[in-house]
């Protein structure tokens, strides 16, 4: 399938390239930083997966992490909600801050961090329960029991992902009867129900057909008005269509993933500074 990279989305959402701020960060001075990593390294046992990654992720924008397979994109994404903690033997060095919270401090409550930083996965993965229960499961675990309040949350969340009108009469139906696109929307709604500030999308369109992909992308762009969004994608056109910022990662001989280039998406794609970035985005490898 050929995708027109100069789609409406692209022209709508990429701002004209302003010069980088003096600090070396490619963000505009008026953009506020939501997440900041400082010399972040991550090891699985003796294997180093990420090395010396420092960058600032802007608030209420979409940041795309791109790069060849195995470069540590997903690992980096999972640093932000500490999902890597589930893997035995993981060690993180350096500093990652969400607003003013240094998220790898010992005192940080991982459970409340994950409420602030939601995640949407690669494949649509609703729980094998009703549509209602899928969305209510998060709020219920936070202790919300009031039926009316749960109803409101479900309604609000489904409205955000444009599913409410289609599903409002079928909330008791099994989520597994929905189409893949609807399932992925439901999963996004499930994440929104926890009222996160940041949403991580881990190749969340890769299991969908092109039409559904487009619709989810439109939803992401829409959500970026209120939420800070970070996506991992293999799809260059997608990164170009939806993201404001792009982070290109690659591994070197030691197999550790590094951040090669971090730039405004339209600048990176029109005028990459690094030769490796250029080779990758023009499809010469990866």
């Amino acid at each position: 399938m050929k995708i027109n990279i100069n789609s409406k989305l692209m022209t709508q959402d990429s701002k004209p390239g302003l010069p980088s701020s003096p600090s070396g960060s490619p963000l505009d001075s008026r953009q506020s930083v939501k997440i900041k990593t400082d010399r972040l390294s991550l090891h699985y046992g003796s294997f180093q997966a990420l090395k010396d990654i420092s960058f600032d992720i802007p608030k209420c924008a979409i940041t795309a992490i791109i790069g060849p397979s195995g470069c540590g994109k997903s690992t980096l994404l999972r640093v932000f909600n500490r999902m890597n903690d589930l893997i035995p033997g993981v060690r993180v060095e350096g500093k990652v801050t969400l607003d003013d919270l240094s998220i790898y401090e010992k005192t940080v409550d991982v459970v409340s961090l994950r409420k602030r930083v939601g995640m949407v996965f690669q494949k649509p993965n609703p729980f094998p329960m009703s549509i209602f229960d899928n969305i209510a499961i998060g709020p219920k675990s936070y202790g919300i029991k009031d039926k009316q309040e749960l109803n409101n949350i479900v309604r609000w969340s489904l409205t955000q992902v444009a599913l409410w009108n289609d599903l409002k009469d079928n909330l008791k139906k099994s989520s597994l009867d929905l189409s893949p696109e609807q399932q992925q929307r439901l999963c996004i709604a499930r994440t929104l129900a926890g009222e996160p500030e940041v949403i991580l999308f881990d190749e969340s369109c890769s299991a969908l057909d092109p039409e559904a992909t487009m619709k989810i992308e439109e939803l992401m762009v829409d959500l970026a008005k209120k939420y800070t969004i970070i996506i991992v994608t293999h799809n260059m056109e997608q990164a170009l269509r939806v993201s404001d910022m792009a982070a290109f990662m690659m591994i070197e001989e030691d197999k550790a993933g590094r951040l090669v280039e971090y730039e405004k998406t339209n600048i990176m794609f029109s005028n990459p500074k690094d030769k490796r970035t250029e080779d990758y985005i023009t499809g010469r490898f990866g």
Binding site: L86, V111, R114, N125, F127, P128, I137, R190, T191
Partner: peptide, 27 residues
């Protein structure tokens, strides 16, 4: 039970116990 159910539950801010009761046990 698919590993991803556990991941989803944790990503929603579930504790280990909530994950087991709400996500793993029903499946």
């Amino acid at each position: 039970v698919p590993k991803v159910y556990r991941e989803v539950s944790f990503s929603l801010g579930g504790t280990k116990w909530q994950t087991i009761i709400k996500a793993v046990f029903p499946s």
